[in-house]
Write a protein that binds this DNA or RNA. Structure first.
Length: 574
RNA sequence: GGUCCCGUGGCUUAGCCAGGAUAUAGCAUCGGGCUUCUAACCCGAGGGUCGGGGGUUCGAAUCCCUCCGGGAUCGCCA
């Protein structure tokens, strides 16, 4: 996996692994797992002495001391010190490691800390039904998906993003039907206007259940390829999708492609995969529907592959879609809400049964409202647009309060960056497996340490550099000497920047983007502490001043990369 | 009822998969800090039976069992 040069912390870790393995073999022993972990007591800490102690019935403390005594760190430039504290083996980075970090950030700039993986990934996210605008639950999918895309790209993968468009399911049939029965409000954003008629249609269908037959009829027509029905469906879909794309773009999110479900029906791929499934000999007809037995994969209930009226289902079309994706990438990743837990497992099981590549599925739990779960159909939701409007409005108030002298244009721009950043950060900082309840008070609170905190640190770094530039004391090509950076806050800041690669590595490996959010906050915190305790421009010694300016520039770069990877804009002034 | 996820100070939350060094941070509360590079900042204080109970282990927030609470899901919706 790692064929390129490792970045800072990962390289340090590798050196430590080599050192410990060599030392252990020198002592005539070996372990599977070195039990290495970052620790607050050291840059890296090993609990290997515990393992050896229980195996060899010896004292872990003595073992740790013995290992440390035999370790020869001289040929590992990034290792500064190794020592035993009780049964723990603590390893510290060297000065060389800090200096190298400084120079690498300066020379690599925005490409620092990544590029150690390779391969093609197809990542699907959002894929909300085009029956209304995105709501605050959908965008959890979008933000998790988009952040993962950015992380994976940073790690070095070539990632294509897709929004899988449901353009022929029951819900879209209802939307299409609704458009011919209710007035479409053209003064509204199109996705919102679609939701209006969709909600009305659902009420109508509930009052007059006999009308459901009309929906079934539409679905059959579309499946059969009836031109005019297809046209009305696709018009309905475009209306919703145009609005959805606009909302996504507003949040710095865009998809490389929008594959339509119907494509897989018309190409014959769905029919073909149904035949393949039949060929497994595990299907039979039940109540007129074609069902698949996945009992040995742990599913009690049969999976319905085809409706009794012969039309395909979401799962069938999704199987064809994944077959297609699997032929085009090394890895497939799907971001799905917890309502898809079972169906996505069934999808994977069926693909496995057919000997086809399976996707990696990232599940996130639902966002609900204080009064209960959201529903587009019932009109019970808070749209993403509404949230973004409110947040930007509040952000404008905050900017206006702090920078009253600036132009409205400036305030507007900053409010947008801060508002969207705040929304994205609040979503991404929470582990996907936690269900959350949306509340306005929290969403509009700019006091908490979120995106604005990180953006502010970036703006601060820019401000220092700008001022120094104006005074003629800062140029990128000044000769700098990072060995002068010995203050605690300086060292901490450099170390924090250096672990960026391992954060990206961890997020990409586990597909857990929230740890990057926490990292970015900690990085900003480190910079703020440095800023508070260490003067930069007001330093008499020119060499030190220039080097510290270089450090500020490194921090600016690291903060900008972190924000960029989180999909949050990095303002130069705010 | 079955299955999956979650339950950590008043509120939000990290750590849990790969068990170990005083359990992470924010908000809120209280106290201190702007004639000095942007105070959307920094420093400090109080506040925790890691949902309850049992078990495994030298050692459990972390693993196992059980109960309670919340969410998701359980064939022709997606």
């Amino acid at each position: 996996m790692y064929e390129a040069v490792l970045c800072m912390y990962l390289e340090f870790k590798k050196q430590v692994e080599t050192l410990l393995k060599e030392t252990l073999s020198q002592l005539g022993t070996a372990v599977e797992d070195l039990d290495l972990e970052p620790s607050k007591h050291a840059d890296l800490s090993s609990k290997v002495a515990f393992r050896l102690a229980s195996r060899e019935k010896k004292n872990p403390k003595e073992l740790a001391e013995k290992i440390v005594k035999s370790a020869n760190i001289s040929k590992f430039p990034f290792i500064g010190e190794i020592k035993a504290i009780g049964p723990y083996i603590n390893i510290y980075t060297s000065k060389k490691y800090l200096e190298e970090t400084f120079f690498r950030i300066r020379s690599e700039g925005s490409s620092f800390g990544g590029g150690f993986c390779k391969g093609d990934i197809l990542l699907e996210h959002t894929s909300a039904n085009p029956n209304g605008p995105l709501h605050v639950g959908h965008i959890r999918n979008s933000v998790i998906g988009d952040t993962l895309v950015r992380i994976l790209r940073k790690a070095g993968y070539n990632v294509e993003t897709q929004y899988y468009v449901n353009d022929m399911g029951r819900q879209i049939a209802i939307v299409s039907w609704a458009l011919s029965h209710f007035d479409f409000d053209t003064s509204k954003k199109s996705d919102h206007a679609i939701a209006d008629v969709y909600i009305k249609a659902n009420i109508k269908l509930e009052e007059e259940p006999e009308k459901v037959a009309e929906i079934d009829r539409l679905m059959q027509l579309v499946e059969r390829g009836d031109e005019s029905t297809i046209k009305t469906f696709s018009e309905a879909v475009s209306l919703a999708l145009d609005g959805i794309k606009e909302t996504l773009l507003r949040m710095n999110i865009f998809h490389d492609s929008f594959p339509y479900e119907s494509t897989f029906v018309r190409s014959g791929a769905v029919t073909r995969i149904i035949e393949e499934i039949k060929a497994t000999g595990r299907t039979y007809i039940d109540d007129g529907a074609l069902v698949l037995d996945l009992d040995d994969y742990g599913f009690e209930k049969k999976l319905v592959i085809q409706r009794s009226d012969g039309t395909s289902l979401y799962i069938t079309r999704d199987l064809a879609y994944h077959e297609w994706k699997g032929e085009r990438a090394d890895r497939m990743i799907d971001i799905l809400g917890s309502d898809h837990k079972v169906i996505s497992s069934q999808l994977k099981a069926t693909l496995n049964l057919l000997g086809k590549p399976e996707p990696e599925v990232v599940i996130f739990e639902f966002v609900s409202l204080p009064e209960g779960s959201m529903s587009t159909r019932k009109g019970k939701f808070i749209s993403a647009d509404e949230l973004l409007d409110q947040v930007e409005e509040q952000a404008f108030v905050e900017v206006d309060m702090r920078r009253p002298e600036m132009s409205d244009d400036f305030k507007q721009k900053v409010a947008r960056m801060v508002g969207i950043g705040a929304v994205r950060y609040d979503i991404i900082k929470v582990s996907p497996e936690k269900s959350t309840v949306f509340n306005w008070k929290d969403a509009l609170d700019f006091e908490k340490q979120g995106a604005p905190f990180i953006q502010y640190s970036h703006a601060r770094a820019c401000s220092i550099l700008k001022k120094a530039q104006k005074e003629g004391i800062w140029k990128e090509d000044f000769v700098m000497n990072p060995s002068l950076l010995i203050e605690d806050t300086e060292v901490e800041l450099i170390k924090k920047m250096a672990i960026f690669d391992s954060v990206i590595d961890h997020c990409a490996r586990e597909l857990k983007p929230h740890t990057l959010a926490i990292y970015a906050r900690e990085l900003a915190e480190s910079f703020n502490q440095f800023y508070r305790f260490v003067p930069v421009i007001n330093v008499d010694d020119e060499k030190l001043r220039v080097t510290r300016l270089g450090l500020v520039d490194c921090a600016r770069i690291a903060l900008a990369i972190s924000l960029e990877t989180l999909g949050i804009d990095a303002p130069e002034s705010m």
